[in-house]
Design a protein around this nucleic acid. Sequence first.
DNA 1: CATGAATGAGCCTTCATTCAT
DNA 2: CATGAATGAAGGCTCATTCAT
Lengths: 199, 199, 199, 199
Amino acid sequence: MARKAGSSGAKTYEAIRAAGLALIHRHGYEGMSLRQLAAEVGLQQGSLYNHIKTKQDLLMELLRGHMQDLLRALDAALSGTEEPLARLRAFIAFHLHYHMTRQAEVFVINFELRSLEPGNYAEIIALRQRYEKCLADILSLGMQLKLIRQTDVQITTYALLAMLTGICTWYRPDGRLNEKQLIDLHTELTLRGLAIDKD
Amino acid sequence: MARKAGSSGAKTYEAIRAAGLALIHRHGYEGMSLRQLAAEVGLQQGSLYNHIKTKQDLLMELLRGHMQDLLRALDAALSGTEEPLARLRAFIAFHLHYHMTRQAEVFVINFELRSLEPGNYAEIIALRQRYEKCLADILSLGMQLKLIRQTDVQITTYALLAMLTGICTWYRPDGRLNEKQLIDLHTELTLRGLAIDKD
Amino acid sequence: MARKAGSSGAKTYEAIRAAGLALIHRHGYEGMSLRQLAAEVGLQQGSLYNHIKTKQDLLMELLRGHMQDLLRALDAALSGTEEPLARLRAFIAFHLHYHMTRQAEVFVINFELRSLEPGNYAEIIALRQRYEKCLADILSLGMQLKLIRQTDVQITTYALLAMLTGICTWYRPDGRLNEKQLIDLHTELTLRGLAIDKD
Amino acid sequence: MARKAGSSGAKTYEAIRAAGLALIHRHGYEGMSLRQLAAEVGLQQGSLYNHIKTKQDLLMELLRGHMQDLLRALDAALSGTEEPLARLRAFIAFHLHYHMTRQAEVFVINFELRSLEPGNYAEIIALRQRYEKCLADILSLGMQLKLIRQTDVQITTYALLAMLTGICTWYRPDGRLNEKQLIDLHTELTLRGLAIDKD
DNA sequence: CATGAATGAGCCTTCATTCAT
DNA sequence: CATGAATGAAGGCTCATTCAT
């Protein structure tokens, strides 16, 4: 349901996406009603359907859009860095930054996959696997080059992603530690855990 | 009809809890209907209310029961071990074992806190904090004794718990790696990340 | 469902009647649930059915019992008085006294006739007509003897009964006027309205 | 389907009010179900909620509307009449006429106050007191001017209102006596009961 | 007699969705 | 495009009643 930019409806559609994201974040997909959403945007219930196809479709658009953004941004963040440990550092910094600045999106994608219909679920999972594969590839290459300890790539990928993603459940911009401190802490924890001592 | 021969209150209640847990795991709390639940247990909808007070109350009983089990089991698992690194190893092994064997419960507690009413939420969060504090105390003592690198205890606790808990989203008993292998992998990753090199 | 006096169940039955009357007075027949009633009496829901046949039957027993008491008491109150104006005074005094002392019963009979099933309704209405006829007969005889103004007996009966019955909606034993004062006021109002001036 | 051709919101709302009034009159508020009401109006149950907020709200709208009509109509009926006995006659005629022509409304307001939630109850009672005060003021002034016997104003007000209101429980337009005859009968009964003999 | 567990119908209300206007 | 009124299914929960224990 992407809208033509510039039309007056595009603004409404963006408002629906924004409010929908916030409401799903707050109440969950099942817990959000289209009544609420319409009220938030200042429309009648029926008018939503001039902008979205169904409730499920709205969720799907949000998740797909998010995953595409995420993958694009990851590519940009890693481009130009080739050395595996440097790429690992870059990945950690990118993931944490993204999860701190787009908390609602990442929260929803972690908690609402369950609400997707099978076909939609498969599509999003495929995108997520592309993301996971990027980290797995870094680890694989690092192990080949003896920069990273030999271990199970798949499980380690899951472990790292779980650790780095957890931040979206508790991070507050006005918290005790700032973004850089958090990135440093996680980077050190990860690299000490994985890198091979040089000397 | 009055009562099915052979049924007994306590057995029915256990059946409701078990089916409720499974359905919440599968569809989420908001996504599970009491109609489904009743059907699963082989009752009329209204009969559920001979055993539970409300739907919310069922969720709460499940979560409270789970947290109490978890805390009791943790105490048992750590008792007798004093040295911080040994306690850390024991904690990791316990947490992973528990999260592999009681996947539904831990999944629900991680994904459905949002569905608790404020009072219930506070109660469960308090129990969870007792659990987190146990890990935080291990880290604190380890740092004091110079066995663990100096770092932020709170954030490190969150990071480790997120990593170790992630397993409940993907672990399958018939997976490629067995329980011991998974525990070893996470233990090594964690201890290399945190422990101070001796020598 | 009258019970044998003296049995231990008789006490329970009386407790059910009393609590039932109070609850119907407070919430109405439709508004009272047998759950509430059982709780009030200290029984489980199912146990009520050892004492009453159905909810409707309980209402009916209450109303029938009340109407029989009322008719018996009226007979007693009027017996020995023959002169029509004296009988009218006696009727007024009796009716008011009864409606002040058994407010719940009279309230229920005035507000819950509607909740009776057709057969029961007819039975109670028949009893009530016997009561109304008593007043109508007094008025008729008074008119024949030229003690009471010529007017429509039926309508006047309704008007007087409505007026005298109204007291059950607002009377409080600790109110500003006592029973005698209220009886005097209504008696004077009625007799001036009806009696023929002598002289 | 979306909307039945020809239906309009205001008309549907009026149909709901009318059917609601009739059903509450017949079965009581607790005894009327919204299923019945919807069927009576030719809607699905849920569609009622495009027009009313809740069942309680429907009752409240009916009662409030009725009380406002009643007060407005009373003002109109008494305006221009100053002399207390004439005002009393006008009050009686107005009250009876209104209670004969809007039987359902007045029946409901007399029998369903009990079903109002506390806040709503207070609001309606306040309106009713304005109505009662109008009669009480007539009586007070009449006593001051020695046109009406000295007696308790409050209780007499209650007594008269109860008597005059009773008509809504039995009046039928095709009954033995017509409206004028009934008004005359009640007027004479009341005035003889209250007025001071002149000569 | 009392209990507790069951029934099946019914309660008020909300849901996502449709569509004539 | 927006609205308001409709749909039909489903939501959680309560009801009076029954009956094996």
